[in-house]
Computed example of a mutant assay.
Amino acid sequence: MDEQPISATLKMIATVMFLFLLAPVILVLPISFSGENYMVFPPATWSTRWYGAFFADGKMLGALGTSTLLAIVVTTLSLAIGLPAAYAIVRLKFRGAEALLNLFTAPLLLPTIVLGLAILILFAAYGLLGTFTGLVIGHLVITLPYALRVLTTSIAGLPIIVEEAASTLGASPLTVFRRMTLPLITPGIVATCALSFLVSFDEAVISLFLTGPAITTLPVAMYQHVDSNADPLVAAVSVLLIVLTLAVVLIVDKSVGLTKAFVK
């Protein structure tokens, strides 16, 4: 069947919608290069002073280091926990596997502020507030559901006959998993790492409940800065975060391809 040509009206509507969705990003970029002492659009003068101010701000750089380390640890744990769990749910097909998957992914259905408040109440009883361990556990609550969804979809899309063929040739279950399953689900693993890293690095609401004077993340530091200042520093940081996100997406695209990574 021949595809119907897209009408000019539909193309125009799609263009307007894309511009509407990208408007905040488009506005942030010029504001970040403002030479003014407060946010104004369009800027009367142009400068890179706020990028320099960010790299000279010890608190912001410390928060950046914390967010980066936190995202790396959370990504590693999400993959280490999610991969065997996803494999067991998909391949072992034990009773209640679907219910268990729904339970593990339930945090995706809750408003983040409700989830953050629940974690706050629980962690307060165990002295985990304002600690790196508490942040790791709190972020795992929201990254593990994403990891499980991506990995279960990736493993379910792998024909089991491939693993069975390797087993009939004498390969042990561990060898089958290491030499057959892992290479074939590499796109799903890469997608899990990218998604977990970005979700953890950008998480603000739960981090607001768990951070303290001794430790803070970059999104929380940005929120605190906006609360007391109206300068374009946050716009400059936002542009850097946009660049980071694009870099991660490009790495995924160049390594395995976006379609293979995020589409079954």
Rank of each mutant, 00 (worst) to 15 (best):
V74K: 06
V249G: 00
P145W: 01
L182M: 06
V90P: 11
L258N: 04
V252W: 00
F55V: 11
T48K: 06
T168R: 11
T105L: 12
L182N: 05
P107M: 00
S78H: 02
L117Y: 07
T45G: 11
R49H: 03
G212R: 08
T192H: 03
L174T: 11
V73A: 05
G170P: 12
L210C: 10
H139F: 01
G170M: 03
G116A: 06
M12N: 10
A63Y: 00
Y87P: 13
L120C: 02
P213C: 00
I81T: 12
I13G: 06
K254C: 01
V176R: 11
G130C: 02
S47R: 13
A204W: 00
T15M: 06
A156Q: 05
L103F: 15
T186G: 08
F33S: 03
T76H: 00
F33Q: 07
A165P: 15
L246T: 05
L108W: 04
A80V: 15
G170R: 08
V205M: 12
T133G: 12
S207K: 01
D57H: 07
T48H: 07
I113H: 05
G82H: 01
Q224S: 04
V74Q: 11
L174M: 13
L129N: 10
M180F: 03
L128P: 15
A191S: 11
T68I: 09
M12Q: 06
L140Y: 08
A85M: 13
I121K: 13
L115W: 00
P42G: 08
L120W: 07
F104N: 09
A99N: 14
V176E: 12
A221N: 03
L64V: 07
T105F: 10
F177V: 10
A125Q: 11
M39V: 15
A166T: 06
L129S: 11
K260Q: 08
L10T: 13
S228T: 14
A235M: 04
A63K: 01
L218A: 08
F201H: 04
I113R: 09
I160M: 12
P42N: 13
P183I: 01
